[in-house]
C-alpha cells in the first residue's frame, strides 16, 4: 500500500463519522428543527454500538444497536420539542450533556475491554488493484453507508414528493399545517432519522476509528457535524465536500508536522477550523443564495392552532 493511498484511507476514516452525523442533521434542519444534541446522540451510539458488539462478538449487531440507541435517544428530544414545544436550543444542549453522562455510566465497566473491529470489504482481485483497489473496493461498510446516505438524502429531498413536503414544512410550518400536512409527524420522523444517523456515526467511532470505548470519545465531532450543515448551506453534496475537506485538512496538518516543515503546530491544528470559517464567509457573501437555502422555520417551536 503506497503512502498516497494510505493518506486517502486515513482521510476517509476521519471524514466518515462527520459525514454520517451531518447528513442526518441536515434532514432534521430541513424539516425546521434544530437539534443541537448531535454530540450526545453520537456518544450514545458509540457506547451502545461498542457494548453490543463486545457482548455478542458481532460488529453488525453493534451497528444496529448504535442506530437504534441514537434513534431512541432522539425520541426524547422529539417528544420534548415537538409534543410539548420546549425550546429547541436548550433541549438540544441538555441532550448533549445527558448523552455524555449517560454514556459514561453505560460504558463504565467496558472501558479498556477489547473491542470488535468491523472488517473492511475484500473482493478478490478488485481490492488488490493498484492505487484505487483499497480506496474503492476495500473500505469498511460505514464508508459505503455514508455515501449511500448522501445519495439517498439528495434524491429524497430534491426528487421525491415527500422530500418536497418536508422542505415546505421547514420553510413555513404554519402554511404546511394549513394545507393539512401532519407537521409534527413529519418532524418526528426527521428527528428520528437524524438520531439514527448520529448513532451510526458514533458506532463508526467505536467499531472502526478506534475500536474501543473511552469516555467522551466523540471529542466534539458532533459539534463539527453541526457546523458542517451550515457550512454546506443545507445541501447534501456540499456536506460531502465539507466533511472530506475537513478530514483532509485534519490529516494533512498531521503530515505537515511529521515532515518537520517547521510551521507552528498550533496554527496547523487550527487550520480545519480556519478553513471552515473562510468558506462560511465566502458562502454568506451571497445573501440571496443563503436565504434561499436556509429553512425559514429553523429552530422555531410549532404549536398547531386548534
Amino acid at each position: 500500500m503506497g503512502m498516497f493511498e494510505s493518506i486517502l484511507l486515513t482521510i476517509a476514516t476521519a471524514a466518515t463519522p462527520l459525514l454520517i452525523a451531518a447528513i442526518g442533521e441536515l434532514v432534521v434542519e430541513r424539516s425546521g428543527v434544530l437539534n443541537l444534541g448531535v454530540e450526545g446522540m453520537m456518544v450514545i451510539g458509540a457506547v451502545c454500538g461498542f457494548v453490543a458488539a463486545a457482548l455478542t462478538g458481532s460488529p453488525w449487531i453493534g451497528v444496529v444497536a448504535g442506530i437504534l440507541a441514537g434513534a431512541a435517544f432522539s425520541l426524547l428530544f422529539a417528544f420534548l420539542t415537538l409534543s410539548i414545544a420546549t425550546n429547541q436550543v436548550a433541549t438540544g444542549l441538555s441532550l448533549t450533556l445527558l448523552g455524555l453522562g449517560l454514556s459514561s455510566m453505560i460504558g463504565e465497566s467496558f472501558v479498556g475491554s477489547a473491542g470488535v473491529k468491523m472488517p473492511s470489504l475484500y473482493i478478490p482481485y478488485l481490492s488488490d488493484l493498484p492505487l484505487v483497489g483499497r480506496l474503492i473496493f476495500g473500505q469498511d461498510p460505514f464508508f459505503y453507508m455514508s455515501l449511500a446516505l448522501v445519495a439517498g438524502v439528495a434524491w429524497f429531498l430534491f426528487r421525491s414528493r415527500t422530500g418536497l413536503t418536508l422542505r415546505a414544512i421547514g420553510d413555513s410550518h404554519t402554511s404546511a399545517h394549513a394545507l393539512g400536512i401532519p407537521v409534527i409527524r413529519y418532524r418526528y420522523l426527521a428527528v428520528l432519522f437524524g438520531g439514527a444517523c448520529a448513532g451510526l456515526a458514533g458506532a463508526q467511532l467505536s467499531l472502526v476509528y478506534t475500536p474501543q470505548w473511552v469516555e467522551n470519545m466523540t471529542a466534539g465531532r458532533g459539534w463539527i457535524a453541526l457546523a458542517l450543515v451550515v457550512f454546506a448551506s443545507w445541501r447534501p453534496l456540499r456536506v460531502l465536500a465539507g466533511a472530506y475537506l475537513f478530514g483532509a485538512v485534519t490529516i494533512g496538518q498531521l503530515h505537515a508536522q511529521a515532515l518537520g516543515l517547521g510551521i507552528p503546530s498550533q496554527l496547523l491544528s487550527a487550520l480545519p477550523y480556519l478553513a471552515t470559517i473562510v468558506v462560511l464567509v465566502l458562502i454568506s457573501r451571497n445573501r440571496r443564495l443563503t436565504i434561499m437555502n436556509t429553512p425559514a422555520s429553523l429552530g422555531r417551536a410549532f404549536v398547531p392552532e386548534r
Binding site: S6, I7, T10, Y209, T210, V214, M217, R221, T250, L254
Partner: peptide, 17 residues
Amino acid sequence: WFDAGKEADAAKVLIDQ
C-alpha cells in the same frame, strides 16, 4: 491530552511516514 480518534490519526500518519 485526550482524543482517541485524533491520537490514532497521528499514529497512522507517523507510521505512513
